[in-house]
Protein backbone atom coordinates (compact mmCIF):
# COMPACT_ATOMS: atom_id res chain seq x y z
CA UNK A 1 0.00 0.00 0.00
CA UNK A 2 1.09 3.52 -0.65
CA UNK A 3 2.79 4.94 2.45
CA UNK A 4 1.37 8.38 1.72
CA UNK A 5 -2.22 7.20 2.06
CA UNK A 6 -1.39 5.08 5.08
CA UNK A 7 -0.21 8.21 6.88
CA UNK A 8 -3.65 9.78 6.53
CA UNK A 9 -5.28 6.76 8.17
CA UNK A 10 -4.92 8.09 11.77
CA UNK A 11 -6.48 11.38 10.71
CA UNK A 12 -9.44 9.58 9.14
CA UNK A 13 -9.94 7.30 12.15
CA UNK A 14 -9.81 10.18 14.62
CA UNK A 15 -12.20 12.25 12.52
CA UNK A 16 -14.66 9.36 12.56
CA UNK A 17 -14.25 9.09 16.32
CA UNK A 18 -14.93 12.78 16.82
CA UNK A 19 -17.98 12.57 14.59
CA UNK A 20 -19.26 9.78 16.83
CA UNK A 21 -18.53 11.91 19.92
CA UNK A 22 -20.44 14.77 18.38
CA UNK A 23 -23.46 12.58 17.70
CA UNK A 24 -23.16 11.21 21.24
CA UNK A 25 -23.11 14.71 22.70
CA UNK A 26 -26.15 15.78 20.69
CA UNK A 27 -28.09 12.75 21.91
CA UNK A 28 -27.14 12.44 25.55
CA UNK A 29 -27.83 9.09 27.17
CA UNK A 30 -31.45 9.09 28.32
CA UNK A 31 -30.57 6.66 31.13
CA UNK A 32 -33.78 4.75 30.41
CA UNK A 33 -33.64 1.00 30.66
CA UNK A 34 -36.69 -0.31 28.80
CA UNK A 35 -38.19 -3.66 29.68
CA UNK A 36 -37.79 -6.53 27.23
CA UNK A 37 -41.10 -7.97 28.40
CA UNK A 38 -43.18 -5.62 26.28
CA UNK A 39 -45.04 -7.70 23.66
CA UNK A 40 -44.70 -10.82 25.74
CA UNK A 41 -47.11 -12.59 28.12
CA UNK A 42 -47.03 -11.44 31.73
CA UNK A 43 -44.37 -13.19 33.79
CA UNK A 44 -45.54 -15.54 36.51
CA UNK A 45 -45.76 -13.47 39.68
CA UNK A 46 -47.69 -13.35 42.93
CA UNK A 47 -47.76 -10.16 44.96
CA UNK A 48 -49.63 -10.75 48.19
CA UNK A 49 -52.16 -8.24 49.53
CA UNK A 50 -50.30 -5.17 50.71
CA UNK A 51 -53.00 -3.94 53.05
CA UNK A 52 -55.94 -5.46 54.82
CA UNK A 53 -59.21 -4.99 52.92
CA UNK A 54 -57.66 -4.81 49.47
CA UNK A 55 -56.67 -7.88 47.45
CA UNK A 56 -53.16 -8.54 46.18
CA UNK A 57 -52.44 -9.27 42.55
CA UNK A 58 -51.00 -12.14 40.52
CA UNK A 59 -50.62 -13.26 36.90
CA UNK A 60 -53.96 -15.11 37.00
CA UNK A 61 -55.87 -11.82 37.49
CA UNK A 62 -55.12 -10.67 33.93
CA UNK A 63 -56.70 -13.32 31.69
CA UNK A 64 -60.37 -12.42 31.96
CA UNK A 65 -60.59 -10.38 28.76
CA UNK A 66 -60.34 -6.98 30.47
CA UNK A 67 -57.29 -4.80 29.71
CA UNK A 68 -55.72 -3.11 32.71
CA UNK A 69 -52.97 -0.78 33.85
CA UNK A 70 -50.41 -2.19 36.23
CA UNK A 71 -48.58 0.53 38.13
CA UNK A 72 -45.29 -0.20 39.89
CA UNK A 73 -44.85 2.34 42.65
CA UNK A 74 -43.64 2.98 46.21
CA UNK A 75 -44.78 5.18 49.06
CA UNK A 76 -41.24 6.60 49.41
CA UNK A 77 -41.07 7.68 45.77
CA UNK A 78 -41.68 11.37 45.13
CA UNK A 79 -42.76 11.18 41.44
CA UNK A 80 -45.23 8.43 42.45
CA UNK A 81 -47.04 10.96 44.63
CA UNK A 82 -47.04 13.38 41.71
CA UNK A 83 -48.76 10.93 39.35
CA UNK A 84 -51.38 10.00 42.00
CA UNK A 85 -54.03 12.52 40.82
CA UNK A 86 -53.58 11.45 37.17
CA UNK A 87 -54.09 7.81 38.10
CA UNK A 88 -57.22 8.86 40.05
CA UNK A 89 -58.61 10.58 36.95
CA UNK A 90 -57.91 7.51 34.83
CA UNK A 91 -59.77 5.39 37.35
CA UNK A 92 -62.71 7.82 37.22
CA UNK A 93 -62.63 7.59 33.41
CA UNK A 94 -63.21 3.87 33.78
CA UNK A 95 -59.75 2.31 33.60
CA UNK A 96 -58.85 -0.41 36.05
CA UNK A 97 -55.50 0.31 37.71
CA UNK A 98 -53.68 -2.29 39.78
CA UNK A 99 -50.60 -1.56 41.79
CA UNK A 100 -47.46 -3.34 42.89
CA UNK A 101 -45.64 -1.59 45.71
CA UNK A 102 -41.91 -2.21 45.98
CA UNK A 103 -39.77 -2.00 49.14
CA UNK A 104 -42.75 -0.87 51.13
CA UNK A 105 -44.79 -1.57 54.26
CA UNK A 106 -48.54 -1.67 54.89
CA UNK A 107 -48.27 1.24 57.33
CA UNK A 108 -46.39 3.56 54.96
CA UNK A 109 -48.70 2.59 52.10
CA UNK A 110 -51.81 3.45 54.10
CA UNK A 111 -50.37 6.90 54.89
CA UNK A 112 -49.35 7.43 51.23
CA UNK A 113 -52.76 6.43 49.85
CA UNK A 114 -54.48 8.54 52.51
CA UNK A 115 -52.54 11.58 51.28
CA UNK A 116 -52.68 10.99 47.53
CA UNK A 117 -55.88 9.00 47.04
CA UNK A 118 -56.21 5.33 46.18
CA UNK A 119 -56.75 4.65 42.46
CA UNK A 120 -55.96 0.95 42.78
CA UNK A 121 -58.36 -2.00 42.53
CA UNK A 122 -55.72 -4.42 43.73
CA UNK A 123 -52.43 -3.66 45.48
CA UNK A 124 -49.77 -6.31 45.80
CA UNK A 125 -46.66 -5.95 47.93
CA UNK A 126 -43.61 -7.06 46.02
CA UNK A 127 -41.53 -9.58 47.93
CA UNK A 128 -37.85 -8.71 47.52
CA UNK A 129 -38.28 -7.09 44.10
CA UNK A 130 -39.26 -10.43 42.53
CA UNK A 131 -42.22 -9.07 40.55
CA UNK A 132 -40.31 -5.91 39.61
CA UNK A 133 -37.44 -7.94 38.17
CA UNK A 134 -39.85 -10.34 36.44
CA UNK A 135 -41.38 -7.34 34.66
CA UNK A 136 -37.97 -5.97 33.72
CA UNK A 137 -38.79 -2.78 35.60
CA UNK A 138 -35.77 -0.65 36.48
CA UNK A 139 -37.38 1.85 38.84
CA UNK A 140 -40.53 3.52 40.13
CA UNK A 141 -42.96 4.68 38.93
CA UNK A 142 -43.51 2.58 35.86
CA UNK A 143 -46.86 1.67 34.32
CA UNK A 144 -47.49 -1.42 32.21
CA UNK A 145 -50.49 -1.81 29.92
CA UNK A 146 -51.77 -5.41 30.00
CA UNK A 147 -54.33 -6.67 27.47
CA UNK A 148 -57.25 -9.01 28.26
CA UNK A 149 -55.28 -12.16 27.45
CA UNK A 150 -52.46 -11.31 29.81
CA UNK A 151 -49.95 -9.82 27.35
CA UNK A 152 -47.86 -6.76 28.13
CA UNK A 153 -48.64 -4.17 25.44
CA UNK A 154 -46.68 -1.17 26.59
CA UNK A 155 -44.37 0.16 29.29
CA UNK A 156 -44.56 3.75 30.45
CA UNK A 157 -41.41 4.82 32.32
CA UNK A 158 -41.64 7.64 34.86
CA UNK A 159 -44.72 9.40 36.25
CA UNK A 160 -47.88 9.42 34.13
CA UNK A 161 -48.85 12.98 33.21
CA UNK A 162 -52.04 14.45 31.82
CA UNK A 163 -50.55 14.34 28.32
CA UNK A 164 -49.96 10.60 28.62
CA UNK A 165 -53.49 9.93 29.86
CA UNK A 166 -55.45 9.76 26.56
CA UNK A 167 -52.93 7.37 25.01
CA UNK A 168 -52.91 5.03 27.98
CA UNK A 169 -56.69 5.14 28.27
CA UNK A 170 -57.05 4.28 24.60
CA UNK A 171 -54.77 1.29 25.10
CA UNK A 172 -57.05 -0.13 27.78
CA UNK A 173 -60.08 0.56 25.59
CA UNK A 174 -61.54 3.49 27.54
CA UNK A 175 -62.91 6.49 25.63
CA UNK A 176 -61.63 9.60 27.44
Amino acid sequence: MNRKWLLWLPFVLVSALFAAFFVGLRNPDDHVIASRMVGKPLPEFVAAAAMPGQPGTATTDYRDGKPRLLNIFASWCVPCAAEGPVLMRMKQAGAEVNGIAVHDTALELAKFLGRNGNPYTRIGLDDGGRAQMAFGSAGVPETFVVDGRGNILYQHIGPVTDEDMPRLLAMVGVKP
Binding site: L7, F18, L25
Partner: peptide
Protein backbone atom coordinates in the same frame (compact mmCIF):
# COMPACT_ATOMS: atom_id res chain seq x y z
CA UNK B 1 -18.49 18.96 26.00
CA UNK B 2 -18.99 20.54 22.56
CA UNK B 3 -16.39 23.20 23.41
CA UNK B 4 -13.78 20.66 24.52
CA UNK B 5 -14.61 18.51 21.50
CA UNK B 6 -13.99 21.47 19.19
CA UNK B 7 -10.63 22.12 20.91
CA UNK B 8 -9.76 18.44 20.57
CA UNK B 9 -10.69 18.41 16.91
CA UNK B 10 -8.47 21.42 16.23
CA UNK B 11 -5.44 20.13 18.15
CA UNK B 12 -5.54 16.46 17.34
CA UNK B 13 -6.98 16.78 13.86
CA UNK B 14 -4.45 19.50 13.10
CA UNK B 15 -1.55 17.50 14.48
CA UNK B 16 -2.55 14.37 12.58
CA UNK B 17 -2.97 16.33 9.36
CA UNK B 18 0.47 17.86 9.93
CA UNK B 19 1.76 14.37 10.63
CA UNK B 20 0.32 12.98 7.42
CA UNK B 21 1.57 15.90 5.34
CA UNK B 22 5.05 16.15 6.87
CA UNK B 23 6.11 12.71 8.01
CA UNK B 24 6.42 11.59 4.38
Amino acid sequence: GIFILALLAIYIGGALALFAARVG
